[in-house]
Design a protein around this nucleic acid. Sequence first.
DNA 1: TGGCTGGCTATGGAAATCACAAGTCAGACG
DNA 2: CGTCTGACTTGTGATTTCCATAGCCAGCCA
Lengths: 162, 162
Amino acid sequence: MPVQVSAGLSVPAERSRGDQCPIDRTVQLIGSRPALLLLREAFYGARRFDDLARGVGISEAVAAQRLKELVAAGVLEKAPYQEPGQRTRYEYVLTEAGHELLPVVLGLLSWGERHAPGARSSVTASHAGCGAPVEPVLMCAAGHRVAEDEVQVTAERRQSAR
Amino acid sequence: MPVQVSAGLSVPAERSRGDQCPIDRTVQLIGSRPALLLLREAFYGARRFDDLARGVGISEAVAAQRLKELVAAGVLEKAPYQEPGQRTRYEYVLTEAGHELLPVVLGLLSWGERHAPGARSSVTASHAGCGAPVEPVLMCAAGHRVAEDEVQVTAERRQSAR
DNA sequence: TGGCTGGCTATGGAAATCACAAGTCAGACG
DNA sequence: CGTCTGACTTGTGATTTCCATAGCCAGCCA
């Protein structure tokens, strides 16, 4: 399913320094603290507005704004639900594209556990099949597990005026 | 309903909303656009102040500030270098912990290529050993490659005070 | 000794973002 | 009909972050 990205909605990607780098584009979409934390809540299983906002600890105004952006970016989707005796409401569920951000979020989690001082994690990610904990790792197309220092990053710099 | 335990934690009162989640801590360290983009430049191979700042397209003041934070966070390190006929200067190199952020950065890159509209990437990451492109994937401790929807995220909710 | 250059530091004002508070809206319930 | 609740929207300052400009500082070189 094609991820439709905002038909001209509020995402401010345009004005900011037009960078053609996908990293920059992704960061502009989900790179702010509230957005990423909302995403974290979504992975935890939160779906309703109040749960999401409270879990992150931000005001409703900010939550509404960020959720709108995440929906526009195709990361979340509004889906109707109805509790017995309640009227129809909308919850926020992760789209396919949203699920694909899990490696990033788990990468942040994993790094934070190892390098950011503080309380231990209260979160675990496990393989639904076998129950073993899950971690993001690097692999090359040939099937090798790749250590961080075995990666060659090459950028075709052509924009560097000067 | 989850219970709130461990409420004894002293109110943060720090500048940041004290969250004991490693994801939040990591985001507070490297989650801003300038910081992440500086990191990107570092992975591209930039080491000198001007190259880093110019590559990101931010002012020197912001670059100096963010670089200082990244050094304080242990992601970058200042190392002396000397070009012939120049005085000793300092460059910024990735530490071990910094290199371990590569999965996160590549995850953002990979996601952006697939889901963020725009020009194609001008960056590739390849395995230094075999030359094949590298991607971040999820693996469980048992050695299985795990799809995003096979991951079970469980959080010990305790903070839902109120 | 004085200029040049890379690498910052300082200041000031514009712009974005936040929390807090209050208001809106739709429909189930009494 | 009128209230209640979840999900927002709007308004108001305070706070933060940004860019731009300017200045400073340390050597190498002439």
